[in-house]
Design a protein around this nucleic acid. Structure first.
Lengths: 208, 208
DNA sequence: ACAAAAGTGTTGAACGTACACCCATGT
DNA sequence: ACATGGGTGTACGTTCAACACTTTTGT
């Protein structure tokens, strides 16, 4: 028989918004020990009978001061074994993504994905994994994509998003091709803005 | 503000053993409604303050009659939104893998992965996803691999395992090559058994 | 020597990436 | 007409699956 320690269940939220053509992450100052005062992901311990989404929402609201109405989308599905954050013992945490309206600030500190500071616990690991997960998901998850970039969105936005998540700029032409191959998107016409050739806009196909 | 229902947290365990050169899945008859009497995955509702691994162990022990001493390894890391199984509301479940000693039976019904029956709730989805997850993990997760096939193990065993997980037989020669490319394995010599050219055996490299 | 079992060499298709070139718009 | 921003065509490299062929053993 294997022996186990006795952790509790937490929800840690990677709270993001897409603004000024960049993906940004919301961090909050910890109000309690350990690591009081440091910047960290929004996280709460799950209460009995509470939804994961509920808990994520509570984390965003209470730790980042962001109104619940400004949460566009919540996605979860990652589990982390996190090193002890609570004196009562180790913690299992569910990693979530929360997408926020571009102009909602709350009391959070917003940072770009290229300038993420050192975070307490294993929050840097969580951010890295969730980042990789988002990079896959934006090509497969219509609601997530729509929450991030809006609907419709231009090719450029996807280029910027992919760039921020991958950490290096992709070849824009390939992004356009890849978008064309995504089943749930259709290209749209839009009145051009600015100079140069107008961009293609992409809309979620009806029935998805 | 997004609205949420109010689920509880469960652990559903894909309990497996590798025996007679095949991967087998343990199912148990449900003792309570809903779907009383049907074959299903071992699953329990998580108790407050309990480990995921603890709960998985409890599920295997209580639902399949398998002694905890026969659990070789537990792996978790998948989250599922499961349709209502409990009258009290929807459930979130953590999908786990439990690897059991080859000769431990318990009170479970053991089935091959090619003959998995229709299961209640979304258990078929869970099995499919965990199956795909295992197919990736066996090439990257030394403890899981060792728990399944032992240490050392012959190429043939990996061929059979890959075959059961992928649903179709791989080209054995490519499996051998792929094993050679895995960083944490080294090839070993072993006294040949049976006819034909003796197989290569693979052992976890020291320090992994 | 032959059959059986396992591994090696080689090929070909698929995919992702990069880059040069062409197109559409504003000034 | 030219500069600017975007998209198309195409070539390269890597990865993976398939299959013929060789090697090693038992009888």
């Amino acid at each position: 028989m294997i022996e186990f320690e006795n952790p509790m269940l937490a929800v840690d939220v990677v709270t993001v918004r897409f603004r000024d053509n960049h993906l940004q992450l919301a961090l909050g100052h910890r109000l309690f020990e350990p690591n009081k005062g440091e910047l960290a992901l929004a996280g709460v311990l799950m209460r009995a009978g509470e939804t994961v989404a509920d808990a994520a929402c509570r984390a965003v609201t209470s730790k980042l001061g962001i109104d619940g109405n400004h949460i566009r989308h919540i996605k979860y599905g990652k589990v982390f074994d996190t090193p002890t954050r609570d004196s009562r013992g180790p913690t299992i945490s569910l990693g979530c993504i929360a997408v926020i309206e571009p102009d909602a600030n709350g009391t959070a500190t917003w940072v770009g994905f290229e300038e993420i500071p050192k975070l307490p616990f294993d929050h840097n690991v969580i951010v890295d994994q969730i980042k990789a997960w988002m990079l896959e998901s934006i090509w497969m998850d219509p609601p997530l994509l729509a929450a991030l970039l809006g609907d419709p969105f231009p090719t450029t936005a996807m280029v910027a998003l992919d760039s921020d998540l991958a950490g290096e700029p992709p070849t824009p032409s390939n992004i356009h091709r890849k978008l064309g191959a995504v089943g749930f998107l259709t290209s749209t016409q839009r009145p051009p803005i600015g100079r140069g050739r107008p961009q293609t806009w992409w809309r979620a196909r009806a029935g998805e």
